[in-house]
Write a protein that binds this DNA or RNA. Structure first.
Lengths: 103, 103
DNA sequence: ACTTACCGTAAGTCATGTCTTACGAACAAG
DNA sequence: CTTGTTCGTAAGACATGACTTACGGTAAGT
């Protein structure tokens, strides 16, 4: 739910691959693991981290659990990034102007 | 320069603290280290990672090096996130509609 | 009821990365 | 030219985390 968790969750390449695979739509765990070079339990562990970070959600469907992207975590990350982006640009513009004053 | 590097760079809490300290404006390494619970070489190593990710830039000023935020890395991260955000919302809306069709 | 499929968790191994201290280089001042 | 800052890099210790195999639990099918 916090942007810190989202950042640490999306840092790992394999976990990012799991996450990006969900862009194609909701998928069960086995389907995800079949197209990845890691074991199925590893996928489950990654999904747990992504879930705790608010990046994915799951619901049961028979014996399988369907995972899909949760906008909450993405939103938190986006808000932080936008806020950072604004202040960074302001500082950048101010610094450019200050440098122009003292050539 | 790539969003992958930006994500892995911003994942570490200490490195994120270094990065966020630069929001206040350009600062030399020693100034950053003075307000952080780690040694000065550690700060240098973090700055190297941030620099390779395109998140900061530096320029010499006498014997010290002034670091400031570089919009490039932030921009790459933002583009990826926005693109992801759009497709995620589309998939979310489509899934909601599909679920509404099959109650 | 029994079997099969699908999944999460626990325990253990192993690699990755973060921190420290020690050292050397570049620049300013005296 | 010597001294004092400021900083980056190298080497090593240490913690964190990612992966595997093994196990138990739940639901569907026969």
């Amino acid at each position: 739910m916090s942007y810190e968790q989202a950042l640490t969750a999306l840092a790992d390449p394999t976990r990012r691959a799991v996450f990006e695979r969900l862009r194609a739509g909701p998928q069960p765990v086995g389907e995800l693991a079949r197209h990845l070079p890691i074991s199925r339990p590893a996928v489950s562990q990654h999904l747990k981290v992504l879930k705790d970070a608010g990046l994915v959600t799951d619901h049961a469907e028979g014996t399988r659990r369907i995972y899909h992207i949760d906008p909450h975590g993405l939103g938190a990350l986006r808000r932080w990034l936008d806020q950072f982006w604004d202040t960074a640009l302001d500082a950048f513009a101010a610094e450019a102007e200050r440098t122009a004053d003292n050539p």
